[in-house]
Write a protein that binds this DNA or RNA. Structure first.
Lengths: 340, 340
DNA sequence: GCGCGGAACGTAAACGTTTTCACAGGAGCT
DNA sequence: AGCTCCTGTGAAAACGTTTACGTTCCGCGC
C-alpha cells in the first residue's frame, strides 16, 4: 500500500531507527547517512503515518475547537485567528461547530479525546457540570468567553464590560445625559457584561437613576421596536446604546422613520463593528471586537498550557481588549481608539 | 496515565478482545457480558484512543479541508456546510486555511496524510501540477470551485456562469439595453465565469456589441471608480452589473454622489448576496450563492468516494446552483428565484 | 457414549512509529 | 597494551487498538 519507514530503511540500507533519527533531526547519525536517508525518503515520497507517531509520542500536533453555531463574521474571524496562530506553531485544527444541544456537544467533546493535544471550548452548553462530566482532567483546555468562573479552568474573555463602559463614557463626554441601553438575550454572558459596563459608567457619572434598559434579542427587528419605545419616552433619551450593531441598525430605521435626526437629536451606538456598520446611514459608532486576536490569544495560551510542566502556576483569567470606533452616528469626529 | 482497553478488560474480567467486540457491537459476546463491559467502560470513563484505532483500521474518521484565506461570510458559510454534513456522518473536520503561497499549501497538504480519510481542496494554488506533486494517488479528493479541469479529480463548482447569465437576462427583461459589467481580479476563476455568463446573455439578446467590461478588483473602492467611469461613458449605460456585491455598493455611492437615480436612471446589481446587500440604499439586487450547500454537497460527494469500491465509475463534474435575488436597485419587484 | 458444530471467549499478531538498550569499533588515556 | 569512553548503528520493545486464529465448552444427533 503506502510507503512506510521500513521501505525507506530497506532502500537506504539502514535500520528503521536510523531513518527515524535522520528524519527527525536527532543526533547519532552521520551527516552523510542523514543525507542519503533524506534523499531516499524524498524519492519515495515518504510521509510518516501520523497515527502511528502519535500513538507512541502521545502528541497529535492537533488542537480541537468546540464552537457554537455562530453567526458569520464572528465565527470566521475567530477560526481565522486560531488557525493562523496554530499553523505558526505547526499545529492542526480540528473543528466541531454548531451542535444543537448539550448531548451533541458532549459527544463531540468526547470523540476529540486521543485526537487532540488541547481544547478550545466556546459553547453555551459548557457549564461547569458539563465540563466536569465530559472533560478528561488531563487535557489542557481554554474556555473562550465563557460564563464559567471556576478556578480549575483557564479562560479568556472579551472585554465586554470595558468596551461598553468606554462607549458610555464617550457618549457622556459628548454631553449626552439621557442614554438608553438596548439589551440582548439575557442568558447571554456577553450581554450581561455589556449592560453592566453601561450601568457602571452611568453610575460613575452620577446618572444611575437615569439609566434605562430596553429589552432586545440581538435582531434588527427588536432594535427597531426598542427605538420606537425610546421615542415614546418622556423625557426622550438623547442617546441610544445598543448591545449589538444589528439592533442599533434597526433603531436607526425607527428614528429616521420618525424624522428624528441622528445624531443631532439622538445619538446612536452599537457593539461589534460588523462590516455593515460603516455603510449604514449615518455610519454607526460602535465598539470593535478584535475577534481574530481573541482566537490567537486563546491558542497561544493553550500552547503554553500544553508545554508547561504540571506544577506550573495557573495563569489568571485573561481579557482581550476592544476598540472604540467613533463614526457619525454619535456626533463625535471619526476615530478609532484602541483599548488594552 | 489515561485508562486503556486493558484496564477495562481487567476490571470486567475479560480479555481485551471481548471489550473491543462489546464496545463496537460485534457479535460473539453474550448480551450479559456486553452489558457488564459497557458498564465498566462507562464507570472508568474509558474512551478509545483514536490514534491506535486508526493505525490498525486505516480509517481516521476525519476529513481535511484545505482552504484559501477567504473573506468572512463565504468562509464561515462554507465551513458550516461542510461541518454540518460531516457531523451527520460522525466525521471530524481538520481545517487548514489561509496559506499565503503554494509552498505553505503544499506543506499543509502533505501533513494531512495519514490524518484524514479524504480531502476537500479549495485553493488558488492548487493547479494540476501542484496536485500531482503533493496529492497521494490513493487519497480521495474533491476540488471545490477549482479551475482544474482534469478528469482525474472529482470537482464541484459554483454556477457562476448560470447566475451571471440569469441576472443579465433579468436586467434585459426589464428593458435595459446598455448593461455594463464590472469585472473582478482576472486570475479568479469565478470572475471569469461570471463575466462569461454576462457576455453570453448579451450575445444571445443580440447585444454583443454593446457589452462593456470595466476593470475592478472586488473592493468597494474599485466599484466606486468603475461607477465614475460608467457615468462618463457616452452613451451612458442604463444598468451596471458588478461581479460582486462590494463593488456594486461602491458603484451605488458613485451614482448617488452624482445625483443619478437608482434604479430610475441606472439599475445596479451585484453577486454574492452578502448580508449587507439588503441594507444599502436602495437594497441591492444580487445573485445569491448557496455556499453552505456547496460545502455539504462537496462533503457528501467525498464520502461517496471514500466508501465506493475502487472500480466505481467516477461521477461527473457537478455544479451547485444560485438564486436570483431581486430587490429595489434594479427596479424589479422583490423576489427570490431559485435556480438549479 | 461419542463425535461434531457452533458459540463465547482468549491469545497473539499486526498496524507504523519512537526510543531504550545493546553492541561494535575507534580514539584517547594511562 | 589494555582500559575506558564516546559515536554510530541495529534490534527490539512499546504505544492501544482490531482481528485472525485457537481453545474451551456446551448441546445436539447418532
Amino acid at each position: 500500500m503506502s510507503v512506510t519507514i521500513k521501505d525507506v530503511a530497506r532502500m537506504a540500507n539502514v535500520s528503521v531507527a536510523s531513518v527515524s533519527r535522520a528524519l527527525n533531526g536527532h543526533s547519532g547519525v552521520t551527516a552523510e547517512t542523514q543525507k542519503r536517508i533524506r534523499e531516499v525518503a524524498a524519492r519515495l515520497r515518504y510521509v510518516p503515518h501520523n497515527a502511528a507517531r502519535s500513538l507512541i509520542t502521545r502528541r497529535t500536533q492537533t488542537i480541537g475547537a468546540l464552537l457554537p453555531d455562530l453567526h458569520g463574521a464572528f465565527f470566521s474571524e475567530l477560526i481565522r485567528g486560531i488557525d493562523l496562530a496554530a499553523r505558526a506553531r505547526g499545529l492542526y485544527l480540528l473543528v466541531s461547530s454548531s451542535h444543537g444541544d448539550a448531548t451533541e456537544a458532549a459527544i463531540a467533546l468526547r470523540a476529540m479525546q486521543g485526537r487532540v493535544d488541547g481544547l478550545l471550548v466556546m459553547s453555551p452548553h459548557a457549564d461547569e457540570a458539563f465540563l466536569d462530566e465530559n472533560l478528561p482532567l488531563v487535557l489542557p483546555t481554554v474556555l473562550i468567553n465563557s460564563h464559567v468562573r471556576s478556578e480549575r479552568h483557564a479562560a479568556l474573555d472579551l472585554d465586554d464590560f470595558g468596551g461598553a463602559y468606554a462607549m458610555t463614557e464617550h457618549l457622556l463626554s459628548l454631553g449626552r445625559k439621557r442614554i438608553a441601553f438596548i439589551n440582548g438575550p439575557e442568558v447571554n454572558h456577553d450581554v450581561q457584561e455589556r449592560c453592566r459596563g453601561y450601568r457602571e459608567a452611568m453610575a460613575k457619572a452620577g446618572l444611575a437613576d437615569r439609566a434605562v434598559v430596553l429589552p432586545g434579542d440581538f435582531t434588527e427587528e427588536s432594535g427597531y421596536h426598542a427605538g420606537k419605545q425610546a421615542l415614546a419616552m418622556v423625557p426622550r433619551p438623547d442617546a441610544i446604546f445598543a448591545a449589538n450593531d444589528m439592533m442599533a441598525i434597526g433603531c436607526l430605521s425607527a428614528l429616521s422613520e420618525a424624522q428624528v435626526r441622528t445624531p443631532a437629536d439622538i445619538a446612536v451606538a452599537g457593539f461589534d463593528d460588523i462590516p455593515m456598520a460603516r455603510y449604514v446611514s449615518p455610519p454607526l459608532s460602535t465598539v470593535r471586537v478584535r475577534i481574530a486576536e481573541l482566537g490567537e490569544s486563546a491558542l497561544e495560551r493553550l500552547v503554553r498550557m500544553i508545554e508547561a510542566p504540571d506544577d506550573a502556576p495557573p495563569e489568571p483569567r485573561t481579557v482581550v481588549g476592544t476598540e472604540l470606533v467613533v463614526r457619525a452616528s454619535c456626533g463625535g469626529s471619526d476615530t478609532v481608539r484602541r483599548r488594552a
